[in-house]
Amino acid sequence: MNVTAQLEPIEESVRRAPALIRYLGEGDYVTRRYVSQGAEMNTGDYFDYACEVRDGMTIRDHFTLDTHGFVLGKHRSAIADFHDKPAVDAAYLAEVENLVTRLSGASRTAAQGWMIRTSADLSARAKQKVEGYQHSGGIQPPAGEAHVDYNEITGQRAAARVYADRFADGPGYKRYICFSLWRTFSPGPQDWPLAVCDGRTVSDEETASNTLFVVDEFPTGDALTAPVEGEDQMIAATIFRHRERHRWWYFSNMQADDVLLFKFQDSDHSVTWRCPHTAFHDTSLPDAKIRESIEVRCIAYFE
C-alpha cells in the first residue's frame, strides 16, 4: 500500500487541532500490555509527539472504509443508559451486529464484547482488589498510545474461532474484517476524543506486537518483562513508532447518534486494511466535557 497518500483538496480545507500522540520509542523492547480493573499499563518506553489532528466532522461523508480505514455513520440506539450492563448485554450487541453488517456490506457480523471508556478519574476503581478480572463489559480509561487492537495472527485466529462458534452451519467466508464500533454518549465536545489514523499512511516497518496480559494485579520489577513461553502465539495488539507521514483525524463534538467504525484488520490487503487509533487531549475547543464512550469489538464476514 502507498504510505504517502496525497491529501485531497477537501481534506486540506478542514480545521486542525494540536495534539500529543503517544508512540513506542525507537529502542528494542519487550512490549506487553497489562490490564486490570480501571487501569492499563505498557512495558517499553513511550514518548509524546506533537502532531496535528484534522477535524473531519464538516466532511464526514468523505471517508470510506476501504480508502481511509474508517467511516462515520449515524445510528440511534435503543439503549437509554449505557451504564445499564444487563441492558447493553441484552440488546446493544445485536444492534451493533446489524449496524456493522450494513455499514460494511458484509454478509453477517458477530459482536465479541464491549467496554466503556471514560476520561473521569478511575483511580479508586483501580485500587479495588478483583479476583478473576475479565477485560470485557467494564470501565477503563481512554486508550493511551497509537495502536491497533490485533496483530495479524490474533485477527486470523479470532475470525476463525468466532465463525466456527457463531456460524457453524455457514458456508465459510472469503473475507473477514475485525472492527471496532465506537460512540460517545456524554455531551460534547469531548475532552479526550478518539483519533484515527489514515491507514494508507502506515506500514509494517514502524510496528511491534504488544502481548495482552489480563491480570488481577500488575506485576512489578523484572516480572514485567520476564520471558513467557509461547508469548509469540498469544493475543497481541500492534503498536506503532512515530512517523511524520501518519495522518490523524477525529470528529469533534460527536453526539450519541454518531458512530465511528474502524478497522483492526481486514483480510483483504488490496485495500486499506487497518486503522491505528488513540485518544488525545483536545485543547482546541472551549468547555470540553468528560468523555464517556462505548466500544464494541466485532468481526464482519463476507461469505
Rank of each mutant, 00 (worst) to 15 (best):
S136P: 02
F218E: 13
R274W: 13
S77A: 15
F302K: 01
W249C: 06
A106H: 05
D89Q: 12
R274N: 14
V196P: 00
A143T: 09
I299Q: 02
D204M: 00
L93V: 09
A106P: 08
P18W: 08
I79K: 06
D258I: 08
K263Q: 13
D45S: 15
L194C: 00
Q37K: 15
S209N: 06
F167P: 04
V296M: 05
V14W: 00
D121K: 09
E12Y: 02
K127C: 06
E52M: 08
E131K: 10
Y163I: 10
V130H: 05
S270V: 09
W182F: 04
A159W: 04
T207M: 05
V271Q: 15
M234L: 15
F262P: 07
R125G: 05
H246S: 05
T64C: 14
W114E: 10
Y250W: 10
V35T: 13
V148Y: 03
Q134T: 08
T207E: 06
S13W: 07
Q265C: 07
V214F: 05
E292C: 00
A300R: 07
T278Q: 03
G69F: 11
Y176K: 01
N42C: 13
L93P: 07
E152A: 06
T207L: 02
H246D: 09
S186A: 01
D287L: 04
A160P: 05
V71H: 11
T64W: 15
Y150K: 01
S13Y: 03
R161G: 10
Y46V: 11
T118F: 06
Q6A: 11
I59D: 15
H62V: 09
A124K: 08
T201Y: 04
T101D: 08
T67F: 08
W248G: 03
I294S: 02
V202A: 04
D165L: 03
T220E: 05
E217H: 09
E52Q: 15
D191T: 07
F82C: 07
V130S: 04
H277P: 02
A195S: 08
Y150P: 00
D81Q: 07
E217R: 12
T225G: 15
Q6N: 06
W249G: 09
H135T: 04
V30D: 11
A168K: 10
E26D: 12
D266S: 13
Q265G: 04
K127A: 12
L224S: 07
Y133C: 05
G44T: 08
F302S: 01
T211C: 06
G44C: 10
G172A: 03
S77R: 15
M254D: 02
R183W: 00
T184L: 00
Y29Q: 03
T283K: 02
A90N: 12
A80Y: 10
N98L: 12
Y163A: 09
V35S: 10
W192I: 00
D282E: 02
V88Y: 11
S284H: 03
H246F: 11
G25R: 12
Y23S: 03
S180V: 01
T43E: 09
T58I: 15
I139G: 02
R161K: 13
A106E: 11
K85C: 12
A110V: 08
G44L: 06
A106T: 11
E244L: 14
A143F: 10
L194I: 00
E95G: 12
A90C: 05
P142Y: 03
Y34N: 14
K289R: 10
V271G: 14
T207F: 04
H83L: 07
T283F: 01
S186T: 00
S270N: 11
